[in-house]
Deep mutational scan, measured.
Amino acid sequence: DVEPGKFYKGVVTRIEKYGAFINLNEQVRGLLRPRDMISLRAENLNVGDEIIVQAIDVRPEKREIDFKYIP
């Protein structure tokens, strides 16, 4: 289970104008929005990159997770 405030290692699987999709594993995926990329620009991300993200909002009923990148 993903808990708000905890840090996780994930892999960038898709990049859109509104953010990057980060997979923690095959069943868990969330969104890293540009406003939550402190000191990281979306254009510096590539599909396949491994990054550490913090879960900031977890909505299990919608199967949605928002992440924040903190260097």
Rank of each mutant, 00 (worst) to 15 (best):
K68D: 03
L24S: 01
G30Y: 02
P34W: 15
D1M: 14
F7L: 07
N25D: 08
L24M: 03
A20S: 04
R33E: 04
I65L: 06
P34L: 15
K62M: 12
I51A: 00
V28N: 05
T13G: 04
A55M: 06
K9F: 09
F67I: 04
A42G: 11
Q27G: 12
V2Q: 03
I15K: 05
G19Q: 07
I65W: 08
V58M: 05
V58F: 07
L24R: 00
D66W: 13
R41D: 10
K6C: 12
E61R: 08
T13Q: 04
K9G: 02
P34A: 13
E61I: 08
N25V: 08
V53S: 00
P60Q: 08
N25T: 12
D36S: 05
D57F: 10
D57Y: 09
N25E: 05
L40C: 11
L32G: 03
G5S: 04
G10L: 05
G5A: 02
G30D: 04
I22N: 00
G30F: 06
G19W: 10
G10I: 04
G10T: 01
K68L: 11
I56G: 03
V53F: 05
L40E: 06
F67M: 04
R14H: 08
N44I: 09
D66N: 07
G48H: 01
L45R: 02
V12S: 00
P34R: 15
I22C: 02
A20I: 15
I52Y: 10
A20V: 15
G5V: 03
P60L: 09
E16D: 13
Y18V: 09
F7D: 02
N44C: 15
G5D: 04
L45P: 00
G30V: 08
L32Y: 03
D66A: 08
I51F: 03
D1A: 14
N23D: 11
E3W: 09
P4Q: 10
K9M: 08
G5C: 12
V11W: 12
P4L: 14
Q27E: 12
E43C: 14
Y69H: 06
P60F: 09
L32V: 05
L32C: 06
K17I: 13
E61Y: 04
Y8S: 00
Q54L: 15
V12N: 00
L45Q: 00
V11Q: 05
I52V: 13
F21Y: 14
S39N: 15
R63P: 06
N46T: 13
R63H: 12
R33T: 05
Y69C: 07
R14E: 04
N25L: 08
R59I: 04
I70P: 03
T13M: 06
L31P: 04
V53N: 00
K6R: 13
E61P: 05
M37W: 06
I51K: 00
R41M: 12
F21I: 14
M37Q: 05
K68C: 12
S39L: 13
R14D: 02
A20M: 09
N23V: 11
E50A: 10
V2K: 03
L32Q: 02
A42L: 15
V47C: 04
V11H: 05
P4E: 10
A55P: 02
E16S: 13
D49I: 05
Q54H: 04
A20N: 01
K6H: 10
I38R: 10
V58D: 02
V28S: 04
I22F: 06
P4G: 05
D49M: 13
M37D: 04
D57L: 11
K68V: 10
N44M: 14
E50F: 15
K9C: 15
V11D: 00
G19P: 01
Y69T: 04
R41G: 12
P34G: 12
L40R: 05
P34N: 15
Y8Q: 01
P4A: 12
E43H: 13
D66Y: 15
R14I: 05
Q54T: 05
K62H: 08
I70R: 06
V12I: 15
F67H: 03
A55T: 05
K68M: 12
I38F: 05
E16Q: 06
R29G: 14
R63M: 12
F7R: 05
E64K: 06
R29Y: 09
I70Q: 09
I70W: 13
D1T: 14
I65Y: 08
E43R: 11
T13H: 04
G30P: 02
R41Q: 13
Y8V: 02
M37N: 07
D66I: 15
L45Y: 04
E3C: 11
F67K: 02
D49P: 00
D1R: 14
I51T: 00
N44L: 13
A55Q: 02
I22L: 03
E3M: 13
E26S: 14
R59P: 02
V58R: 04
N46I: 09
R35I: 11
K62F: 09
P60A: 10
V11L: 08
N44T: 13
E26V: 12
E43I: 11
D49T: 05
F67P: 03
L31E: 04
F67A: 03
V53P: 00
D49Q: 10
I51P: 00
I22H: 00
E61H: 11
N44H: 14
